[in-house]
């Protein structure tokens, strides 16, 4: 059996450190996800309104964020704005800002798509029953839109969790950074550590995202 370099994990507090790194990654992604789901839903609803000005602004925001690589956004916020505006942003806070901006943009487009995919006669039969606009939205349109949104937003959430591996570039010590540090520190004693440690990181990401997929599958079945 080749040496997979897994023994390094058991050395000192290495495994606990990796888990700590995962905690940082999850904290950044989950806070951003929460903000994105909330703001994205609001903006998505706004995007279905007929006001041309708000539509144009939201469209511009969406396209700008979607075209920009996340790494450039991270650099822009962490190195750029702190220098230009003289404020103080930690790496973690910068990450949360960037991921929220990105997630909100993507989420709003998903919400817009889900809302416009509800057939017009659903609005009409709700109206014909005497439901007000707000009631139709709340009891008829949104619940159906949410069901359509689940697979799409789960995809977005797992993408956001995975993309947090970029934040090591602005000095945040998350799971991948910890992994690198451990590998570096043990380069002489166990040169094969790279395989074992990165494999561990892979599994950790898997176990972080898998329950979300399971939850989505469960909700989809329940709400079919």
């Amino acid at each position: 059996m080749p040496d997979l370099g897994l023994s390094v994990l058991l050395k000192g507090k290495n495994f606990a450190r990796i888990l700590g790194g995962l905690g940082v990654a999850l904290k950044i992604s989950l806070v951003s996800v929460a903000i994105s789901l909330l703001l994205g839903t609001l903006l998505g609803i706004l995007m279905t309104w007929k006001n041309p000005l708000s539509r144009a602004i939201l469209r511009l925001y969406l396209e700008f964020i979607r075209i920009m690589p996340q790494m450039v956004l991270l650099f822009l916020v962490y190195f750029g704005t702190t220098r230009a505006f003289g404020w103080n942003l930690s790496g973690e806070l910068s990450s949360v800002i960037v991921f929220s901006l990105w997630g909100t943009a993507e989420m709003s487009d998903l919400v817009r798509g889900a809302l416009t995919s509800i057939p017009a006669h659903q609005y009409e039969s709700a109206a014909a029953l005497g439901l007000s606009k707000r009631q139709s939205y709340f009891f008829v349109v949104l619940p159906q839109a949410v069901r359509r949104l689940i697979p799409l937003s789960i995809n977005l959430i797992t993408r956001m969790i995975k993309t947090t591996s970029l934040v090591l570039m602005i000095g945040v010590v998350e799971v991948l950074k910890v992994a690198q540090q451990i590998i570096e520190a043990n380069r002489m004693s166990s040169p094969n550590a790279a395989f074992g440690i990165y494999l561990t990181v892979l599994l950790l990401y898997f176990f972080a995202c898998w329950p979300i997929s399971l939850l989505a599958k469960y909700l989809e079945r329940r709400w079919r």
Partner: peptide
């Protein structure tokens, strides 16, 4: 309507009582 237009996310009973209750 021609195309029934029941609310797909609600049961038959919920479809019927939604408007009486909310409106």
């Amino acid at each position: 309507f021609q195309s029934y237009d029941l609310f797909p996310h609600l049961t038959v009973l919920e479809n019927i009582v939604l408007a009486p209750m909310k409106v």
